[in-house]
């Protein structure tokens, strides 16, 4: 991958695409698809991740003329990916789709075992991560889309407030206030899950 990068920089490929070589965009998709899936895959349900990731690249393509090159293409694309996930939740929030199902027996068991002193879990590591992710996604559903995006950036990915503000197009003060308020809501939601599971 490093060889390919040195062979042709992002800027060179972008220049070709803007010059009319649409298929050259495929090089950028290949180069950054894992990166975009990492961002989107955390934020939206697994079944929808592929489509949202496609949206990210289509948006990037249609906005490519506005890419000024002041920051690396990867950063610019990350911003589009975070905003695409935010739009995904805004759409769901508007249409008031049914929230995730309540805790399954596996989720309850995972909560109990995770909080037990002997942390030796009967779950395989991958299965354990999947259940943990389901529970976090369920807790996040109680937040507004914007608060959710702030919590994901600031608390879960531990990005600086200024960076989160820049990505979301908000002021740093706004992000700080939202982050504080939303984290409290998230903690309350996790507590409620604990209580529901009797853990």
């Amino acid at each position: 991958m490093t060889d390919e990068r040195t062979a042709q920089s992002d800027e060179e490929i972008i220049g070709r695409v803007l010059g009319g070589e649409t298929d050259a965009f495929g090089r950028l998709v290949e180069r950054y698809r894992e990166h975009v899936f990492r961002i989107v895959g955390r934020r939206v349900p697994r079944d929808d991740a592929g489509e949202v990731a496609q949206d990210v690249f289509v948006r990037a393509f249609t906005s490519l003329g506005r890419f000024e090159g002041r920051s690396p293409f990867e950063h610019w694309l990350s911003k589009i990916a975070v905003r695409a996930a935010l739009d995904y939740w805004r759409e769901r929030y508007r249409s008031r789709e049914a929230p995730m199902s309540s805790l399954s027996e596996d989720h309850r068991e995972w909560l109990e075992k995770s909080l037990a002193d002997d942390s030796a879990s009967s779950f395989e590591a991958a299965e354990s991560r999947r259940l943990a992710r389901d529970l976090m996604m369920s807790a996040l559903e109680g937040l507004s889309p914007a608060d959710r995006a702030v919590v994901e950036l600031v608390h879960l990915e531990e990005r600086p407030i200024a960076e989160a503000a820049q990505i979301l197009g908000l002021t740093a003060v706004n992000v700080k206030v939202r982050a504080h308020r939303a984290r409290k809501r998230l903690r309350d939601a996790i507590e409620r899950m604990r209580d529901a599971a009797g853990a």
Partner: peptide, 12 residues
Amino acid sequence: LLADGWKAGGGA
């Protein structure tokens, strides 16, 4: 633990 699970992503 939940944050670690979230960071691991959905596997897509």
